[in-house]
Structure formats: C-alpha cells, structure tokens
C-alpha cells in the first residue's frame, strides 16, 4: 500500500483478514501473505494509538490567541 491506512481502514482490513483465515480454505502462499499483511496492519493500528499521545495544554483565550501569533520555532 502506498499510503498508511487510517486507523479505521487498517482495523477493518485486519478484521476481514482474520475472518477469512478463520473461515479456512486459503492455500499456503495466500495464508503467508495474509498473515504478513495482518501483522503489518496490527503494527499500523498500534502506531495510530501511540500517535494520539501528546501534551495537555490549558490556555486562556487571550493566551491561546497570542500563541497563534508567536513566530514559529
């Protein structure tokens, strides 16, 4: 895939893969491919969770506006 899928896209695809593997009937090569893709999707999902972590900022309106105007670092 050229671009990292969004969390929902990744999760949906992962759920579809697991469901298909659980249904059975995939051959060895397809199984390996799906397993690899699923593992990659899991990593993507987890990475999305980590991305939500960050700072808590509490600003009064005037300070928030002033900060917007500050020259960027």
């Amino acid at each position: 895939m050229s671009k990292t899928p969004s969390y929902s896209e990744a999760l949906q695809r992962l759920e579809a893969i697991v469901a298909e593997l659980e249904r059975g009937g995939t051959d060895l090569e397809a199984t390996v491919k799906m397993f690899e893709e699923g593992s990659e999707l899991l990593r993507t999902c987890q990475a999305h969770l980590d991305e939500a972590e960050g700072q808590l900022k509490r600003l009064r309106l005037a300070d928030a506006e002033a900060e917007l105007e500050e020259p960027q670092p």
Partner: peptide, 15 residues
C-alpha cells in the same frame, strides 16, 4: 488489538 493478534496467529497456524 490483542484479540485480533491472537486470532490472526491461531488461524494462520491452523492453516
């Protein structure tokens, strides 16, 4: 995620 990881491993192993 953990559930899906387990199911992925188990189903692939079964295949």
């Amino acid at each position: 995620h953990d559930d899906l990881a387990l199911r992925l491993e188990a189903s692939a192993a079964r295949r």
